[in-house]
Design a protein around this nucleic acid. Sequence first.
DNA 1: AAAAGTAGCAACCGCACGTAG
DNA 2: ACTACGTGCGGTTGCTACTTT
Length: 332
Amino acid sequence: MRSLTKSTSSSSEDDCELRRGPWTLEEDTLLIHYIARHGEGRWNLLAQRAGLRRTGKSCRLRWLNYLKPDVKRGNLSPQEQLLILDLHSRWGNRWSKIAQVLPGRTDNEIKNYWRTRVQKQARHLKIDANSTQFQHIIRSLWMPRLLHKIDGSTSTSSMSYYNNASSQPANYGSQHLTFLPQLPKLPQQQQETPSHSNPFDMTMTKHAIELQDQNADSEQCTGPCLSSTESLNIPEIPRVSQYPTSPFHVIDNNSDRTTFVKDCFVESTCYGMETINLANMSVSGGVGNSAGNSHTAESGWIGCDFGDTLWNIDELWQFRNLQLSGESGSCF
DNA sequence: AAAAGTAGCAACCGCACGTAG
DNA sequence: ACTACGTGCGGTTGCTACTTT
Protein backbone atom coordinates (compact mmCIF):
# COMPACT_ATOMS: atom_id res chain seq x y z
CA MET A 1 0.00 0.00 0.00
CA ARG A 2 1.38 3.30 -1.05
CA SER A 3 0.46 5.35 1.93
CA LEU A 4 3.46 7.58 2.15
CA THR A 5 5.74 8.82 -0.51
CA LYS A 6 8.65 8.66 1.85
CA SER A 7 9.40 8.44 5.49
CA THR A 8 11.53 10.95 7.24
CA SER A 9 12.56 11.50 10.77
CA SER A 10 13.29 15.17 11.02
CA SER A 11 10.48 17.51 11.89
CA SER A 12 11.48 19.97 9.21
CA GLU A 13 11.17 17.30 6.60
CA ASP A 14 7.93 16.16 8.15
CA ASP A 15 6.55 19.57 7.41
CA CYS A 16 7.20 19.08 3.74
CA GLU A 17 6.20 15.45 3.62
CA LEU A 18 3.12 14.84 1.55
CA ARG A 19 0.94 11.89 2.11
CA ARG A 20 -0.43 9.87 -0.74
CA GLY A 21 -2.71 6.95 -1.09
CA PRO A 22 -5.90 6.20 0.78
CA TRP A 23 -7.25 8.79 3.13
CA THR A 24 -7.52 8.05 6.80
CA LEU A 25 -10.52 8.83 8.96
CA GLU A 26 -8.51 11.46 10.73
CA GLU A 27 -7.65 13.22 7.50
CA ASP A 28 -11.24 13.08 6.37
CA THR A 29 -12.34 14.61 9.65
CA LEU A 30 -9.82 17.39 9.38
CA LEU A 31 -10.90 18.22 5.88
CA ILE A 32 -14.60 18.11 6.65
CA HIS A 33 -14.27 20.29 9.70
CA TYR A 34 -12.08 22.81 7.96
CA ILE A 35 -14.42 23.16 5.02
CA ALA A 36 -17.38 23.39 7.34
CA ARG A 37 -15.78 26.37 9.00
CA HIS A 38 -14.08 28.08 6.09
CA GLY A 39 -15.60 26.73 2.94
CA GLU A 40 -13.98 25.42 -0.20
CA GLY A 41 -11.47 27.00 -2.50
CA ARG A 42 -7.76 27.73 -2.51
CA TRP A 43 -7.06 24.10 -2.02
CA ASN A 44 -3.33 24.36 -1.51
CA LEU A 45 -3.86 26.92 1.20
CA LEU A 46 -6.69 24.88 2.60
CA ALA A 47 -4.50 21.82 2.82
CA GLN A 48 -1.87 23.70 4.78
CA ARG A 49 -4.22 25.47 7.13
CA ALA A 50 -6.23 22.36 7.80
CA GLY A 51 -3.06 20.62 8.88
CA LEU A 52 -3.32 18.10 6.09
CA ARG A 53 -0.13 16.83 4.59
CA ARG A 54 -1.76 16.46 1.26
CA THR A 55 -1.62 18.40 -1.94
CA GLY A 56 -4.41 20.78 -2.64
CA LYS A 57 -5.37 18.66 -5.57
CA SER A 58 -5.67 15.62 -3.39
CA CYS A 59 -7.86 17.48 -0.91
CA ARG A 60 -10.08 18.80 -3.63
CA LEU A 61 -10.47 15.37 -5.15
CA ARG A 62 -11.23 13.75 -1.83
CA TRP A 63 -13.81 16.38 -1.02
CA LEU A 64 -15.55 16.44 -4.36
CA ASN A 65 -15.57 12.72 -4.95
CA TYR A 66 -16.18 11.38 -1.50
CA LEU A 67 -16.67 13.71 1.41
CA LYS A 68 -19.03 16.31 0.03
CA PRO A 69 -22.37 15.82 1.74
CA ASP A 70 -24.42 15.57 -1.41
CA VAL A 71 -22.27 12.88 -2.94
CA LYS A 72 -24.52 9.97 -3.60
CA ARG A 73 -23.31 6.46 -3.13
CA GLY A 74 -24.62 3.25 -4.52
CA ASN A 75 -25.55 1.88 -7.89
CA LEU A 76 -26.64 4.10 -10.69
CA SER A 77 -30.33 3.99 -11.33
CA PRO A 78 -31.67 3.17 -14.79
CA GLN A 79 -32.55 6.83 -15.19
CA GLU A 80 -29.03 7.84 -14.43
CA GLN A 81 -27.62 5.20 -16.74
CA LEU A 82 -29.88 6.35 -19.50
CA LEU A 83 -28.71 9.89 -19.03
CA ILE A 84 -25.10 8.86 -19.07
CA LEU A 85 -25.48 6.86 -22.25
CA ASP A 86 -27.32 9.63 -23.96
CA LEU A 87 -25.13 12.46 -22.82
CA HIS A 88 -21.98 10.56 -23.62
CA SER A 89 -23.12 10.07 -27.17
CA ARG A 90 -23.67 13.79 -27.29
CA TRP A 91 -20.74 15.14 -25.39
CA GLY A 92 -18.19 12.35 -25.47
CA ASN A 93 -15.88 11.91 -22.53
CA ARG A 94 -16.91 15.14 -20.92
CA TRP A 95 -17.37 13.45 -17.60
CA SER A 96 -17.63 16.54 -15.48
CA LYS A 97 -20.17 18.01 -17.83
CA ILE A 98 -22.22 14.85 -17.69
CA ALA A 99 -21.87 14.76 -13.93
CA GLN A 100 -23.46 18.20 -13.69
CA VAL A 101 -26.66 16.69 -14.95
CA LEU A 102 -26.60 13.92 -12.40
CA PRO A 103 -26.88 15.39 -8.94
CA GLY A 104 -24.70 13.70 -6.41
CA ARG A 105 -22.73 11.80 -8.97
CA THR A 106 -19.13 12.65 -9.64
CA ASP A 107 -17.31 12.73 -12.89
CA ASN A 108 -15.06 10.03 -11.55
CA GLU A 109 -17.98 7.77 -10.81
CA ILE A 110 -19.48 8.30 -14.23
CA LYS A 111 -16.15 7.73 -15.87
CA ASN A 112 -15.72 4.52 -13.94
CA TYR A 113 -19.19 3.42 -14.92
CA TRP A 114 -18.46 3.99 -18.55
CA ARG A 115 -15.16 2.23 -18.47
CA THR A 116 -16.17 -0.74 -16.40
CA ARG A 117 -19.70 -1.37 -17.65
CA VAL A 118 -20.14 0.15 -21.04
CA GLN A 119 -16.73 -0.45 -22.48
CA LYS A 120 -16.88 -3.97 -21.19
CA GLN A 121 -19.74 -4.68 -23.54
CA ALA A 122 -17.79 -3.22 -26.42
CA ARG A 123 -14.87 -5.45 -25.59
CA HIS A 124 -17.13 -8.46 -25.61
CA LEU A 125 -18.29 -7.51 -29.06
CA LYS A 126 -14.77 -6.70 -30.15
CA ILE A 127 -15.75 -3.30 -31.39
CA ASP A 128 -14.66 0.14 -30.44
CA ALA A 129 -16.78 1.63 -27.71
CA ASN A 130 -16.72 4.94 -29.55
CA SER A 131 -17.72 3.48 -32.86
CA THR A 132 -21.02 4.19 -34.48
CA GLN A 133 -21.73 0.49 -34.42
CA PHE A 134 -21.53 0.34 -30.69
CA GLN A 135 -23.45 3.57 -30.31
CA HIS A 136 -26.12 2.01 -32.40
CA ILE A 137 -26.23 -1.02 -30.17
CA ILE A 138 -26.51 1.21 -27.16
CA ARG A 139 -29.33 3.15 -28.67
CA SER A 140 -31.19 0.26 -30.13
CA LEU A 141 -30.79 -2.24 -27.37
CA TRP A 142 -29.47 -0.81 -24.20
CA MET A 143 -31.38 2.41 -23.95
CA PRO A 144 -34.73 0.89 -24.79
CA ARG A 145 -34.13 -1.63 -22.09
CA LEU A 146 -33.37 1.08 -19.61
CA LEU A 147 -36.51 2.84 -20.69
CA HIS A 148 -38.32 -0.36 -20.08
CA LYS A 149 -36.95 -0.54 -16.61
CA ILE A 150 -37.88 3.06 -15.99
CA ASP A 151 -41.31 2.47 -17.35
CA GLY A 152 -41.68 -0.62 -15.26
CA SER A 153 -40.76 1.22 -12.15
CA THR A 154 -43.21 3.90 -13.10
CA SER A 155 -46.11 1.55 -13.19
CA THR A 156 -45.06 -0.57 -10.30
CA SER A 157 -43.25 1.63 -7.89
CA SER A 158 -44.35 5.04 -8.99
CA MET A 159 -40.95 6.20 -10.07
CA SER A 160 -39.82 6.38 -6.53
CA TYR A 161 -36.21 6.64 -7.32
CA TYR A 162 -35.49 9.93 -5.75
CA ASN A 163 -38.05 9.49 -3.14
CA ASN A 164 -36.05 6.59 -1.91
CA ALA A 165 -32.72 8.21 -2.41
CA SER A 166 -33.15 11.58 -0.91
CA SER A 167 -36.65 11.93 0.34
CA GLN A 168 -37.29 14.64 -2.16
CA PRO A 169 -40.88 14.86 -3.19
CA ALA A 170 -41.54 13.67 -6.66
CA ASN A 171 -44.39 14.76 -8.83
CA TYR A 172 -45.81 11.79 -10.58
CA GLY A 173 -49.23 13.17 -11.11
CA SER A 174 -48.63 13.77 -14.78
CA GLN A 175 -46.00 11.13 -15.20
CA HIS A 176 -43.38 13.82 -15.11
CA LEU A 177 -40.21 12.79 -13.49
CA THR A 178 -39.22 15.68 -11.37
CA PHE A 179 -36.28 14.08 -9.79
CA LEU A 180 -33.83 14.85 -12.50
CA PRO A 181 -32.18 18.19 -12.79
CA GLN A 182 -32.73 20.62 -15.54
CA LEU A 183 -30.11 20.16 -18.16
CA PRO A 184 -27.70 23.02 -18.30
CA LYS A 185 -28.28 25.26 -21.19
CA LEU A 186 -26.29 24.19 -24.16
CA PRO A 187 -24.12 26.55 -26.08
CA GLN A 188 -25.92 28.14 -28.94
CA GLN A 189 -24.47 25.95 -31.61
CA GLN A 190 -25.47 22.87 -29.73
CA GLN A 191 -29.02 23.89 -29.29
CA GLU A 192 -31.45 22.78 -31.83
CA THR A 193 -34.70 24.41 -32.53
CA PRO A 194 -37.26 22.66 -30.48
CA SER A 195 -40.56 21.81 -31.92
CA HIS A 196 -41.96 21.41 -28.47
CA SER A 197 -41.97 23.63 -25.52
CA ASN A 198 -39.38 21.68 -23.65
CA PRO A 199 -36.43 20.68 -25.77
CA PHE A 200 -35.58 17.92 -23.42
CA ASP A 201 -38.92 16.32 -23.37
CA MET A 202 -38.64 12.67 -23.98
CA THR A 203 -42.13 11.73 -24.64
CA MET A 204 -43.19 8.32 -25.56
CA THR A 205 -46.63 8.75 -26.80
CA LYS A 206 -49.37 6.30 -26.46
CA HIS A 207 -49.45 5.51 -30.12
CA ALA A 208 -45.73 5.65 -30.53
CA ILE A 209 -44.81 3.17 -27.92
CA GLU A 210 -46.51 0.34 -29.52
CA LEU A 211 -45.76 -2.29 -27.12
CA GLN A 212 -47.82 -5.17 -27.77
CA ASP A 213 -49.53 -7.09 -25.21
CA GLN A 214 -48.09 -9.99 -27.06
CA ASN A 215 -44.78 -8.94 -25.70
CA ALA A 216 -46.13 -9.08 -22.26
CA ASP A 217 -47.43 -12.48 -23.05
CA SER A 218 -44.22 -13.56 -24.60
CA GLU A 219 -41.88 -15.26 -22.26
CA GLN A 220 -39.03 -14.34 -24.52
CA CYS A 221 -39.59 -10.68 -24.34
CA THR A 222 -39.46 -9.74 -20.78
CA GLY A 223 -36.39 -7.67 -21.38
CA PRO A 224 -36.27 -4.53 -23.44
CA CYS A 225 -39.88 -4.39 -24.38
CA LEU A 226 -41.74 -1.62 -22.76
CA SER A 227 -44.48 -2.99 -20.72
CA SER A 228 -46.81 -0.11 -20.77
CA THR A 229 -48.56 1.88 -23.41
CA GLU A 230 -48.87 4.85 -21.20
CA SER A 231 -47.26 8.07 -22.13
CA LEU A 232 -44.17 8.83 -20.21
CA ASN A 233 -43.12 12.40 -20.12
CA ILE A 234 -39.71 12.90 -18.73
CA PRO A 235 -39.13 16.59 -18.91
CA GLU A 236 -35.64 16.74 -17.56
CA ILE A 237 -34.25 13.69 -19.22
CA PRO A 238 -32.73 14.60 -22.52
CA ARG A 239 -34.20 12.99 -25.51
CA VAL A 240 -32.53 9.77 -26.38
CA SER A 241 -31.20 11.14 -29.56
CA GLN A 242 -30.98 14.50 -31.10
CA TYR A 243 -27.75 14.30 -32.96
CA PRO A 244 -27.72 14.74 -36.67
CA THR A 245 -25.00 12.16 -37.04
CA SER A 246 -26.47 9.66 -34.74
CA PRO A 247 -27.28 6.32 -36.27
CA PHE A 248 -30.30 6.51 -34.09
CA HIS A 249 -31.80 8.94 -36.49
CA VAL A 250 -31.47 7.01 -39.63
CA ILE A 251 -33.22 3.89 -38.60
CA ASP A 252 -36.34 4.05 -40.58
CA ASN A 253 -39.50 2.54 -39.37
CA ASN A 254 -40.48 1.73 -42.89
CA SER A 255 -37.12 0.51 -43.95
CA ASP A 256 -36.34 -3.13 -44.14
CA ARG A 257 -32.72 -2.60 -44.81
CA THR A 258 -31.82 -4.44 -41.69
CA THR A 259 -34.01 -7.09 -40.39
CA PHE A 260 -32.77 -6.87 -36.89
CA VAL A 261 -32.80 -3.18 -36.56
CA LYS A 262 -36.17 -3.04 -38.12
CA ASP A 263 -37.47 -5.22 -35.42
CA CYS A 264 -36.01 -3.24 -32.65
CA PHE A 265 -35.76 0.41 -33.34
CA VAL A 266 -35.96 3.69 -31.69
CA GLU A 267 -37.02 6.40 -33.98
CA SER A 268 -36.17 9.94 -33.24
CA THR A 269 -38.41 12.63 -34.52
CA CYS A 270 -37.28 16.16 -34.93
CA TYR A 271 -37.27 17.60 -31.48
CA GLY A 272 -38.77 17.02 -28.20
CA MET A 273 -40.50 13.89 -29.26
CA GLU A 274 -38.82 10.59 -28.90
CA THR A 275 -40.77 7.86 -30.47
CA ILE A 276 -39.84 4.50 -29.29
CA ASN A 277 -41.23 1.59 -31.09
CA LEU A 278 -40.34 -1.75 -29.74
CA ALA A 279 -43.32 -3.37 -31.20
CA ASN A 280 -41.62 -6.20 -32.92
CA MET A 281 -39.00 -7.00 -30.45
CA SER A 282 -40.48 -10.29 -29.59
CA VAL A 283 -40.51 -11.18 -33.25
CA SER A 284 -36.78 -10.94 -33.32
CA GLY A 285 -36.62 -13.36 -30.52
CA GLY A 286 -36.39 -10.86 -27.77
CA VAL A 287 -33.37 -8.74 -27.46
CA GLY A 288 -32.89 -9.72 -23.94
CA ASN A 289 -33.80 -12.67 -21.96
CA SER A 290 -35.87 -12.87 -18.93
CA ALA A 291 -34.34 -11.94 -15.67
CA GLY A 292 -34.72 -15.48 -14.62
CA ASN A 293 -32.18 -16.65 -17.11
CA SER A 294 -28.74 -16.79 -15.74
CA HIS A 295 -26.67 -18.11 -18.57
CA THR A 296 -23.03 -17.44 -18.57
CA ALA A 297 -21.26 -15.57 -21.29
CA GLU A 298 -19.95 -18.88 -22.53
CA SER A 299 -23.44 -20.12 -23.07
CA GLY A 300 -24.41 -17.07 -24.97
CA TRP A 301 -25.52 -14.50 -22.48
CA ILE A 302 -23.60 -11.59 -21.22
CA GLY A 303 -24.35 -10.14 -17.90
CA CYS A 304 -25.16 -6.58 -18.66
CA ASP A 305 -24.73 -4.81 -15.49
CA PHE A 306 -27.63 -2.54 -15.20
CA GLY A 307 -29.57 -4.44 -12.72
CA ASP A 308 -30.93 -7.86 -13.14
CA THR A 309 -31.15 -7.92 -16.87
CA LEU A 310 -29.00 -9.59 -19.42
CA TRP A 311 -28.10 -9.23 -23.02
CA ASN A 312 -28.16 -11.99 -25.52
CA ILE A 313 -24.66 -11.97 -26.89
CA ASP A 314 -25.64 -14.01 -29.89
CA GLU A 315 -28.00 -11.37 -31.02
CA LEU A 316 -25.58 -8.63 -30.23
CA TRP A 317 -23.16 -10.42 -32.49
CA GLN A 318 -25.82 -10.75 -35.12
CA PHE A 319 -26.49 -7.07 -34.77
CA ARG A 320 -22.84 -6.26 -35.01
CA ASN A 321 -22.21 -8.51 -37.98
CA LEU A 322 -25.12 -7.08 -39.84
CA GLN A 323 -23.59 -3.68 -39.49
CA LEU A 324 -20.13 -4.82 -40.46
CA SER A 325 -21.41 -6.68 -43.50
CA GLY A 326 -23.15 -3.58 -44.69
CA GLU A 327 -26.60 -4.99 -44.50
CA SER A 328 -27.64 -1.98 -42.60
CA GLY A 329 -27.04 0.01 -45.74
CA SER A 330 -26.46 3.68 -45.30
CA CYS A 331 -27.37 3.58 -41.71
CA PHE A 332 -23.75 3.61 -40.73
C1' DA B 1 -9.32 -24.39 0.49
C1' DA B 2 -6.18 -22.02 -2.27
C1' DA B 3 -4.71 -19.80 -6.42
C1' DA B 4 -5.82 -17.17 -10.38
C1' DG B 5 -8.59 -14.07 -12.71
C1' DT B 6 -11.73 -10.18 -12.92
C1' DA B 7 -14.43 -6.09 -11.72
C1' DG B 8 -15.11 -1.92 -9.38
C1' DC B 9 -13.47 2.08 -7.57
C1' DA B 10 -10.50 5.50 -5.13
C1' DA B 11 -6.70 8.09 -5.97
C1' DC B 12 -2.96 9.96 -8.68
C1' DC B 13 -0.84 12.13 -12.76
C1' DG B 14 -0.08 15.24 -16.44
C1' DC B 15 -1.92 18.66 -19.11
C1' DA B 16 -4.84 22.69 -20.15
C1' DC B 17 -7.01 26.76 -18.92
C1' DG B 18 -8.02 30.99 -16.33
C1' DT B 19 -6.50 34.72 -13.62
C1' DA B 20 -3.88 37.77 -10.73
C1' DG B 21 0.30 40.22 -10.30
C1' DA C 1 3.00 40.21 -22.76
C1' DC C 2 4.80 37.18 -19.47
C1' DT C 3 4.90 34.28 -15.40
C1' DA C 4 3.28 31.81 -11.49
C1' DC C 5 -0.27 29.82 -9.27
C1' DG C 6 -4.72 27.64 -8.57
C1' DT C 7 -8.11 24.84 -10.40
C1' DG C 8 -10.41 21.57 -13.42
C1' DC C 9 -10.42 17.73 -16.49
C1' DG C 10 -9.57 13.29 -18.66
C1' DG C 11 -6.68 9.31 -18.56
C1' DT C 12 -4.38 5.89 -15.94
C1' DT C 13 -2.90 3.14 -12.08
C1' DG C 14 -3.17 0.15 -8.31
C1' DC C 15 -5.67 -1.81 -4.49
C1' DT C 16 -9.45 -4.53 -2.67
C1' DA C 17 -13.22 -7.51 -2.94
C1' DC C 18 -15.40 -10.86 -5.35
C1' DT C 19 -15.75 -14.80 -8.53
C1' DT C 20 -14.10 -18.66 -10.89
C1' DT C 21 -11.22 -22.62 -11.46
